[in-house]
Amino acid sequence: MVKLAACAAFVMLVILSIFIGAGEFSPWQAIHDPAALQLFFASRLPRTIAAALTGAALSIAGLIMQALVRNRFVEPSTAGTAQSAALGILIMTLVFPAASLAMKTLFASILALLGTSIFMMTAHRLPPAQPYLVPLFGLVYGGVIGAVVTFIGWQTELLQFIDIWTNGEFSGVVRGRYELLWGTALMAAIAWWIADRLTVLSLGRDVSIGLGLSYQRTLQLGLVIVSVISALTVVIVGIIPFVGLVVPNLVSRMLGDNLRGTIPWVGLSGATLVLGCDVLGRLLRYPYEIPVATVMGVVGAILFLRLMFTRATHA
């Protein structure tokens, strides 16, 4: 029932996202008007795909991160991953301004990996009896890296670029400028492929070793997936908060934590949520746009509070 509703909502938002925007574009025109068709392929379709990919990938990244850290309240944008990626692209922009987007993304991924590894190593040392210490530490840690990014940006007069990377929005997404995002789909597919290993990992180190899982290797693979997804989305869209936090938690409440079964639903729900926030951002002050990160900040916060104050439904 809920699954059906999620599918229906997703399809509806895809249609809405394609037909809403500043340029005239109706289903009738799509068939008869070549200029409208051009708008469809150059802008509306890429934007819709980008939003869906970003939402799905960020949610899955959040899910994996929660399995790796064994804490439900972490996600890439609150644990230094996204901030490290932003630092990476800033450094590339300063040092190798001529580098291709793919090269910049690669470097951003490496810094994201580094930043997240440091977070993980520290998180594993925090007393497990106090689960809120980990997300709190993540917030501070991410905040510090974010401050470094802002400081460098301020010193080098790159602040307006930094805003692009840190405040996610889809208005700049057109054909030719978003295709790297398909890399996140690849990462999501890998995550699904190793879903059982990730579930075993989430049962803890001792259970993992007892079941013969190569614990360190799986941990590293998970970290790479999270880092690459974060870097790709930061470079092309910018940071979007809360998706990676609320979507996995909502799905876990309903379907549990067996990742082979839940990853597709986490992806679909994340895609729906981000698409929905993007459409909302386009409608609220039509014909002006509100960045998706801003809308998500509000919507995500409301969803998060709801999560905190409602108890899990028992199966």
Binding site: R70, T199, S202, L203, G204, D206, V207, I209, G210, L211, G212, L213, S214, S252, G256, D257, N258, A312, A315
Partner: peptide, 25 residues
């Protein structure tokens, strides 16, 4: 490790499992 896991199983004393899995899973 996998070879050993086919011969030897361990239940830890503090086998706390935080994941929401069903008993069957």
């Amino acid at each position: 490790s996998r070879l050993l896991a086919q011969r030897l199983a361990i239940l830890r004393q503090d086998g706390a499992v935080a994941s929401r899995l069903t008993v069957r899973e």
